[in-house]
Amino acid sequence: MLTLEGVQTYYGNIEALKGIDLEVQQGEIVTIIGANGAGKSTTLMTICGLPRAAEGRIRFEQYDITRMPTHEIVQLGIAQSPEGRRIFPRMTVLENLQMGASKSNPDFFEQDLAHVQELFPILKKRENQRGGTLSGGEQQMLAIARALMSRPRLLLLDEPSLGLAPLVVRQIFEVIEQINREDDVTVLLVEQNAFHALKLAHRGYVMVNGRITLSGAGDELLDMPEVRAAYLEGG
C-alpha cells in the first residue's frame, strides 16, 4: 500500500533520513520505534511532503507521491495526526472535526461525526467546547478523530501516547486497534512507547540515526535482546 525506497531527507545540511526503505501492507498496523532524534517523525512528515524527500521514492498504492503537494497527498486517502496534536485551540471540538471532514462528500459529515463520537465518547460531551480547553488526552483523541473524519485508508499517527497517563494511553491504543480491525484503516504508528507499540503492531521497524536497523513482526522485535536492551529495559 505504502512503499518508501531509499528516502533521504535533509533539514538544511543535516541529513535527517539516510535512505529509508519501508513498506506498509493493506490492513496492517506498522510501528516505527526509536530514540529521540532517530528520524521517526521526519519519516512520517516526509510521507506527507513536509519536508520533501531529496532522494528516493515514495509510493502510495498506484501513485508516486514523492513530489506531490501535501494537500493532494492527503486527498488520496492518507490522514495524519501530527506530532504535538496540533488541534485548533480557539475553535470548538466540533469545528476541529469539521476541518478534518471529507472534502469529497459533505454528506458523510454527520455519519462520520457519529462514528468518531462513538469511538471517543468524551468528544461528544465536549463538542461545543474550545479545543484549547481540553485535557492532553482529550486533545490527542480529538487529533485522531479529526484525522479519521476524512475517511482515510492509511492513518499516520505520531506519538499518540506522548505525555499521557497510562490509562489514557491504553484507551487510545484500543481505539487504534479497533479502527484497524473494524474499519479496515491501515495504520503507521510512530512511538517512543516501544512496548505498547510493538504489542499492538503487526510489524515494526527500529530506527537509529536516520536509518532502519531492524525490522520484523511486533512480537519478534519484542523478544530481541538488542531491542529489549535499548528501548524496553532500564534507561
Binding site: C48, L50, T70, H71, V74, Q75, A79, Q80, P82, R86, I87, F88, P89, R90, M91, E95, M99, G100, K103, R146, A147, S150
Partner: peptide, 15 residues
C-alpha cells in the same frame, strides 16, 4: 480560521 490557528495542521488535513 484554521490557517490562523495552525498552518502545519491545516496542510496535514488536506487544505
Amino acid at each position: 480560521e484554521a490557517l490562523r490557528e495552525d498552518e502545519i495542521a491545516c496542510r496535514s488535513l488536506g487544505i
